[in-house]
Design a protein around this nucleic acid. Structure first.
Lengths: 295, 295
DNA sequence: ACAATTGATAAGTTTTTTTTATCAAATTTA
DNA sequence: TAAATTTGATAAAAAAAACTTATCAATTGT
C-alpha cells in the first residue's frame, strides 16, 4: 500500500486552485508533465479520479470532497514548518533559569524584560536558590541555565562563564561607628563588634576574614530576618554589594578593604546537554549586558 | 530554503520513540545510515540539533520541543490518509438524490436505510420533484442521481438505467362500478365517467387513452388534493401503481388493460461528471434490489 | 475547418534516497 | 583493565523517484 506524498497533495491543490495543469505548472515552476503524473499517481493510490477526464481540469465530486481536507492539511504542514523554525530560532518554547537570590532580585527583572521583548513567545521560569542549589538544579537538568557565583566544583559537567565581580562589604546600621568609613574597612575593625554570619559568609573562607564567621554570635540564612536583626543593632554582617538591599534607609554598606574579597558572578551551563536556542539567546544577552570578558 | 520532508519527520519521530537509530531502522526496515542521514539533513534544514551528539540518541531540549509537534502532525497525516481513502470508498462525503414523489415515498425509505447501514458516515439528502424536475436538477449538477421514469430527452448528457416498470391503472372509489373489474379495464369504459387529470397523466400521451386527458373535467397536480377529490367521488383518474396510496381504505386501483401502459422507473446519472463513490454505491444497491435487467 | 490549447504519455535525465562498507567513540563484558 | 560489542557518522555506489523534453490525441475557440 503506497503512501500519499506531500508533493502530490500540493500539486493536486494547486491544479484545483489554478483551474488547470498548465497554469499550475507555471506557478510551481515545474513542467506540466510533472504535475500530470504526480496527480495521476495520487489518483491511482486513492483509487478514484480527482479530476474529470476531458479537456479541462474540473474536479470530480470525489475531488470536491478531498480538496478542503487536503488544503487544511497543507496549511497545517505550513504551520508546523513555521513553528519548528521559530522554535529553532528560540522564538518558541520555554526557558528555565535558576539564580541566586541577589541576582534574581536585582538583575533578572531587567534582563527578563529585554529577553521577553525579543522572544515574546517563550515561557520563562525563574527559581532562586543558594549557590550550591542552582548548580545542583542545573546538573539535574531541572533548569537550562544557572546564575550564581563561581565555585568550580564540577568542571567535568558544568561550564562557568564569568560576567562580573561583586565586592564583599560590611553591613551595619547607619548610626554604627563603622558606617562612616565609606572608603573601606579592615576585617579586624569588624571583629571588635558582634558578627552575624549569613549564607554568603562562606565567601570569607580561606581569607583572614574567616575569623569573623568563626566568632559569630548568630547565624541567619534568611535575608529578611538578617535585615531585621541588623536594624535592631544586634550586630553587623558582611554581604556582597549586590545582595545589599539598596532601598533600605537604616542600613549602610561599606566596602571590605583588607582583605578585598569579590565573588565572581557568572552563568553556568551544562556540558552534557545542548543549550536550547532560547537559552543560548539568553546567555548572549547576558554577555552583551556585562561584557564578554570578566570585568 | 529547503522544505521539510515527511520522511524526515517520520524518521525523527521513530528514532525518538525507539531511543536509537539502530532500533528505529530495524522497525522501519531501512538501513541505519538512511535514518542517520535523513535526520542529519532535517537538523541542517532547521539549523538546530535534534539529538545530543554522543553515543545514545538522546533528544536535545530543542528536539524535546519539536517531538510533540511532529508527532501531532504525523497523526494528522495519518488521519488525512484514512479520510481520503474512506472517501474514495464512498464511506465519507454526501450523496444527493432527486426522485419523483412516488418512488421517494414508497421505495426510498427502505433503500436509504440499507444504504446508511453500509455507509453510516455519508450525509444523504433527498429532494422530490416531478419527472422533468429531477432530470433538470441532475443536469444542473444539483444532485448526483435521479430516480424517475424514463423520458429519453437528453441522451447526450444523461444515462438512464431502467430498474422496473410500473403499470398505469384506474383509481376510483371502492363503491364505484369500475372498482370490481380487478382483472382490468378498457379506456373506453373509463371515458364514460368524469375524469380528473393529474401530473402522471402525460404518460397516457401517444396512446388511445390520451382521449381521457383531453376530455378531463379537472386537472390536479397535488396528490393529496387528488385523493380528496376522488374520495368525494368527483371523478376517476389514472395513476401508476406505485403512486397509488396503498394505505387508503376508500379508493381502489384497477389495472388499465387496453391499452396496457407502463412507465419505466429507472435511475438517471450524468454522463458529464464522474459519479461520486457513494453515488456509485447507491446505484449498485438499486441494481441489486431490482435486478440489473429491467423486469 | 483550422489554429490554439488542453491534459496524457514515453523516453531520457537529474535528483534524491537508500544501501553497503567502514570508522571512531562509547559502553559492556569478561 | 582490556577485549569485544554496540553506538552513530560518513563516503561511495546503487536504486528509486522526480522531473524535463518531446510528442500525442482530444477539445475548444474563431
Amino acid at each position: 500500500m503506497m503512501d500519499i506524498k506531500l508533493q502530490q497533495l500540493r500539486y493536486f491543490s494547486l491544479v484545483a486552485e489554478k483551474g488547470g495543469f498548465r497554469a499550475a505548472s507555471d506557478t510551481a515552476n515545474r513542467s506540466q508533465a510533472a504535475l500530470s503524473t504526480a496527480v495521476k499517481e495520487l489518483e491511482k493510490i486513492l483509487g478514484q479520479a480527482l479530476f474529470e477526464s476531458g479537456h479541462k481540469a474540473k474536479l470530480t465530486p470525489y475531488g470536491e470532497v478531498c480538496l478542503p481536507m487536503v488544503n487544511q492539511f497543507l496549511s497545517l504542514y505550513q504551520a508546523l514548518d513555521t513553528d519548528l523554525r521559530a522554535a529553532a530560532k528560540g522564538q518558541l518554547g520555554q526557558l528555565k533559569i535558576a539564580s541566586v537570590p541577589s541576582v534574581a532580585a536585582k538583575l533578572m527583572p531587567q534582563l527578563l524584560v529585554r529577553f521577553s521583548e525579543q522572544y515574546p513567545q517563550v515561557q520563562v521560569s525563574l527559581v532562586d536558590d543558594n549557590a550550591l542549589g542552582v548548580e545542583k538544579r542545573l546538573l539535574a537538568g531541572e533548569v537550562d541555565l544557572a546564575l550564581g557565583n563561581c565555585s568550580h566544583r564540577d568542571e567535568q559537567h558544568i561550564q562557568f562563564i564569568p560576567l562580573f565581580s561583586d565586592p564583599i562589604g560590611l553591613v551595619c546600621q547607619r548610626q554604627h561607628p563603622l558606617a562612616i568609613k565609606t572608603e573601606g574597612v579592615h576585617w579586624q575593625q569588624i571583629s571588635r563588634h558582634n558578627f552575624i554570619s549569613n549564607g554568603t559568609s562562606r565567601l570569607l573562607a580561606a581569607t583572614p576574614a574567616a575569623m569573623l564567621t568563626e566568632q559569630a554570635k548568630y547565624r541567619v540564612e534568611n535575608i529578611t530576618s538578617l535585615v531585621s536583626m541588623l536594624e535592631l543593632n544586634l550586630g553587623v554582617t558582611t554581604l556582597p554589594k549586590l545582595a545589599f538591599p539598596t532601598d533600605n534607609s537604616q542600613l549602610q554598606w561599606v566596602p571590605l578593604l583588607t582583605p578585598a574579597i569579590e565573588r565572581q558572578i557568572g552563568i553556568f551551563s551544562s556540558l552534557d546537554r545542548h543549550l536550547s536556542p532560547q537559552a543560548s539567546a539568553f546567555l548572549q544577552l547576558c554577555l552583551a549586558e556585562f561584557g564578554s570578558i570578566d570585568n
